[in-house]
């Protein structure tokens, strides 16, 4: 049988690209930020990441093998990406069992209940993260201080929650400014927060790598960051004492992480550039709305999940332009 000629429909060559390679590139792009977070939070950073990744892979395998009774496809690498993203979204001192629950929710509910890779509506890592945030608000919001800050304390507030508390208590921005980190610190990552949120510049580095390797396109990140900047800029111009400046908005919290790594998740973002821009703008608007008027200091996770839900709708309307389709 082996020496028979093979027949298949055209095309007969393939780009040699694979989903596995794409996932591998995403992991590689997250490495600088991961290394930095270990540097900032110590061995704890590594511990959280390791547990999250291992748990995601294990749950994916077990659920596919025994619950769905299909051939496990963990080799595609998507569980690793989910694991790292989940780790990036939690504080470094999170107890191991909470991480396990997060991984189970992310993989089990966020991904496999929809049918596995490619069929999920919501970004699995964010489903896990939001589940933990709502279920374990205390553990999820007590942020360990960075090693570099040298403060003799176990936990501290993130810049965003500090700001939120302050404004709630009727203080103006200029009164609070002393307690806020400067933009340079934010850019290089000397502030508290989730693992992956710390250094904006390293996240951008990873984003550029993915852009060059064509894992992502520019549309989503630019739309998210642009709309965050413009919308918060408008608010800032209206009243700089009540609303913080746009540069601070972009550099703090998870905006950078969300815009570059989570909103660009292929499975849950729209198919066309046009759609991705609409999607990105939506994320930016919702993020700033939650930050400014909502109960939570940070809103990017919710924003991305909400926009994930409307992605199919965006896909229905933001169609590519048909060649020769003019009337």
């Amino acid at each position: 049988m082996s020496n028979l000629l093979i027949v298949s429909p055209s095309p007969h060559i393939h780009s040699e690209d694979s989903a596995q390679k794409i996932m591998f590139r995403v992991v590689l792009a997250m490495m600088p930020a991961l290394v930095w977070s270990v540097f900032v939070f110590g061995i704890d950073g590594l511990r959280v990441t390791f547990i999250a990744v291992a748990a995601c892979i294990a749950f994916e395998y077990l659920i596919q093998r025994f619950l769905m009774k299909v051939e496990p496809v963990i080799t595609d690498g998507s569980a690793i990406v989910t694991g790292i993203l989940l780790a990036f979204n939690v504080p470094s001192n999170l107890p191991w069992w909470i991480i396990l629950i997060g991984a189970l929710v992310a993989i089990g509910i966020g991904k496999l209940s929809f049918g596995g890779l490619g069929n999920n509506i919501f970004n699995p890592a964010l489903v896990g993260r939001v589940f933990l945030l709502i279920s374990f608000p205390v553990q999820m919001t007590s942020w360990p201080v960075t090693i570099q800050s040298g403060i003799d304390a176990v936990t501290s507030a993130t810049p965003l929650s500090f700001l939120k508390e302050g404004i709630k208590n009727g203080k103006s921005i200029s009164e609070l400014a002393g307690g806020l980190p400067n933009n340079i610190d934010l850019l290089f990552g000397n502030t508290g927060g989730s693992l992956g949120e710390v250094s904006a510049i390293l996240l951008i580095l990873g984003g550029l790598y993915m852009l060059v390797k064509k894992v992502i396109t520019w549309h989503t990140p630019v739309a998210v960051l642009g709309s965050v900047f413009i919308f918060s800029g408008i608010l800032w111009l209206i009243n700089p004492e009540l609303y913080i400046n746009p540069v601070f908005q972009i550099l703090t919290g998870g905006v950078m992480l969300g815009a570059i790594f989570m909103a660009t998740d292929m499975v849950t973002s729209p198919m066309t550039g046009k759609g991705q821009i609409i999607y990105g703008i939506g994320i930016g608007l919702i993020t700033i709305s939650i930050r400014t008027w909502g109960a939570y200091p940070e809103g990017i996770s919710f924003a991305i999940l909400l926009m994930n839900a409307v992605t199919p709708l965006i896909n229905t309307y933001a169609k590519p332009k048909l060649f020769g389709g003019y009337k």
């Binding site: 049988m1 000629l5 298949s8």
Partner: peptide, 13 residues
């Protein structure tokens, strides 16, 4: 058999 088909295994295709 004189050759081997390597495509989507439906008769129509």
């Amino acid at each position: 058999r004189t050759n081997k088909f390597d495509g989507v295994t439906t008769c129509a295709i």
